[in-house]
Design a protein around this nucleic acid. Structure first.
Length: 594
RNA sequence: GGGGGUGUAGCUCAGUUGGUUAGAGCGAUCGCCUGUCACGCGAUAGGUCGAGGGUUCGAGUCCCUUCACUCCCGCCA
């Protein structure tokens, strides 16, 4: 092939027997028998066992080399005897008898071993990321990521989409996350912002007449990290389409997702046609707008039960009188579960900051009755009603939460996950996609009582536009949707508002004057006034798709060079201080934090 | 900004109720070993127990402060 190798470390087989070859790679592992040395040579493509005996003049030197030294081996391909074949390796039927070797790259003592399945502290992995990335699992994850992205590009092109780049240096926008700012040298005192998403640009692409756009788009948000959320930057499959309705966007994304997940995973997609669940239904049945549909548990509304005379659960009744609501989860066939299971859930709920979960199991001798700490407060008629509402059976249990709507949504949604997990109700070999639709256009901030856009301010409200009742903004629904898989929010999207007058009206509800809208969204609002096509789109998160495919819980496992939780790159030492000269040129001075 | 977890040898970890000289495996170094594939066997080196302060006759262990990493809440239209 060239002066370094004739083959890679993953390709030689019995067919190459007796060939003289050369390989280059890292010393993955040595097994030194004193007079006989086995050496596993590794590159991106695989591992090949090399063999040298003590009669060889270079034996003593080779024996001393550290693991991870990069060497070139010239040798002969030999067939292994039947009893020494390694079935784990593609190259396991052969080995290389070393004729000569040469060091290409020395190594210092390793701060972390490459050949090991152990877990390592994040700090050391990030500082020596180039070593970490040599390890098998993460190496394969990164290769998977590359292949998925490449597949997405080719599928999107087949679907008639064109990929365009949009600016990285753009303007700060008032909505949404904190911006990363970049000072402008030529415009002292002014700043660019890195895009939180190419939202306005992709709409401008539509107004520019390009019809179908996509981009593997870098997005920058200065917000705190989570296990599934990189600090700083992440990638979206940004999509926008002209002259479409919601269904057309769904069709493209469903087609694409099914192709990706079938190609890159063996796990089964439960719903070939992704279920569509309205936002309000999702909040009721699952307590969240990103439900894990692999989990069969459903939340039911039981407030009415606590208004009955024949229910004497006074704590809940009192709260209901003062406006609280009661919802609960039915857990099937739990009559044989030990008391510790129920108490464990209750204790867990209290640890989550809730006031706990009341529970009882439905039993029947002559009459229906509740077994458990609060069971005695329920008449058999009220239990019958509970069973009617929730389709529960004798032998099932009810976990009840009482409180404000958003509080009990939160705790019951967590309880669904917790109980589903404990009772092993979740099939981890499946993907359950769904669409969440009909998001409200606005929401009320409970602290400030101010009305805000609940998602994207550029979404199109539903219904006849001339009849739009702006006096009751919280009732307005938007053509706004999310796609969710296994409880992971992959993306949100919307049919956009392409009518400038309507845009001003909606922004005014959220407290923005026409002048402010003109100033903040000048590029887009201006473009909307010169013949804008109806359009809409979506932006599935690439990182989360890869996480689902790789079965990883942490986004760093599928990111080549991630930052730590404090948004620092420990390998490159970013962020870092800059010189006085650099600051001066940018007309900046830094206030030292005390 | 708030809450939880972790921090002991290069790496992964153990260390009991506060009590002698802080241990193991891997790695490193040296020696032995011709069929291993997590090779095996023996020896040696390697420690600011994250840092600082306190309690105590005595602190890896208890208390306070602080730092780092991580998970979660807030935040992420």
């Amino acid at each position: 092939m060239n002066k370094y190798r004739s083959h890679t470390c993953g390709e030689l087989t019995i067919k190459d027997k007796n060939k003289t070859i050369s390989l280059s790679g890292w010393i993955n592992k040595k097994r030194d028998h004193g007079n006989l040395l086995f050496l596993d040579l590794r590159d991106n493509y695989g591992i090949t066992q090399c063999l040298i005996e003590n009669s060889h003049p270079q034996f003593k030197e080779l024996e001393k080399l550290s693991l991870e030294t990069v060497i070139k081996v010239d040798g002969k391909v030999s067939e292994r005897s039947k009893d020494t074949v390694n079935k784990e390796l593609n190259t396991g039927e052969i080995e290389i008898s070393v004729i000569s070797y040469k060091i290409l790259g020395h190594t210092k003592e390793l701060p972390l071993p490459v050949f090991s399945d152990q877990e390592y502290a994040e700090e050391i992995r990030l500082k020596y990321r180039f070593l970490d990335l040599r390890r098998k699992k993460i190496h394969q994850n990164i290769i998977l990521r590359s292949k998925v992205i490449s597949f997405i590009r080719s599928e999107m092109e087949k679907l008639g989409f064109l990929e365009f780049q949009t600016p990285i240096l753009t303007s700060s926008s008032p909505e949404g996350a904190r911006d990363f700012l970049v000072p402008s040298r030529l415009n002292p005192g002014k700043f660019y912002a890195l895009p939180q998403a190419p939202q306005q640009f992709k709409q401008l692409v539509m107004m520019s007449g390009f019809d179908r756009y996509f981009q593997i788009a870098p997005c920058f948000r200065d917000e705190d990290a989570r296990a599934d959320r990189s600090p700083g930057e992440f990638y979206q499959l940004d999509i926008e389409m002209s002259f479409v309705e919601q269904e057309n966007v769904f069709e493209v994304v469903e087609t694409l997702m099914k192709k990706i997940f079938k190609k890159f995973s063996n796990k089964k997609i439960i719903y070939e046609s992704f279920p569509k669940i309205t936002y309000s239904e999702a909040m009721l049945k699952y307590g969240t707008d990103k439900p894990d549909l692999r989990n069969p548990l459903i939340i039911n509304e039981f407030t009415e039960i606590f208004k009955r005379e024949d229910v004497s659960f006074e704590i809940f009744k009192k709260l209901v009188k003062s406006g609280s609501i009661v919802r609960g989860i039915i857990v099937k066939n739990t009559k044989d579960k030990p008391r510790s299971f129920f108490d464990g859930i209750d204790k867990w709920a209290k640890e989550q900051g809730a006031s706990g979960l009341a529970y009882f199991t439905i039993e029947k001798d002559s009459l229906l009755k509740g077994k458990g700490p609060v069971g005695k407060f329920f008449s058999s008629e009220s239990i019958e009603k509970i069973m009617e509402i929730s389709k529960a059976n004798v032998g099932d249990s009810v976990f009840l939460a009482c409180g404000k709507k958003n509080e009990i949504e939160k705790i019951l949604s967590q309880a669904r996950d917790k109980i589903g997990d404990e009772l092993k109700l979740i099939n981890h070999n499946t993907y359950a996609f769904c669409w969440i639709i009909d998001y409200p256009m606005f929401e009320k901030d409970e602290n400030t009582k101010k009305i805000n856009f609940s998602h994207n301010p550029f979404s199109m409200p539903q219904g006849e536009l001339k009849n739009l009742d702006i006096s009751n903004p919280l009732e307005i629904k938007a053509y706004q949707y999310d796609i969710v898989c296994n409880g992971v929010e992959l993306s949100s999207g919307a049919i956009r508002n392409h009518i400038p007058e309507l845009m001003y009206k909606l922004f005014s509800i959220a407290g923005y004057s026409k002048e402010e809208v003109d100033k903040k969204f000048s590029g887009m609002i201006n473009a909307l006034s010169y013949g804008a096509p109806p359009h809409g789109g979506i932006a599935p998160g690439i990182d989360r798709i890869i996480m689902l495919l790789a079965g990883e819980k942490n986004i760093r496992e599928i990111t080549m060079f991630p930052m730590n939780q404090n948004a620092q790159d420990l390998m490159m030492n970013a962020p870092s201080e800059v010189s006085e000269d650099q600051l001066k040129e940018l007309n900046l001075s830094v206030k030292k934090k005390k």
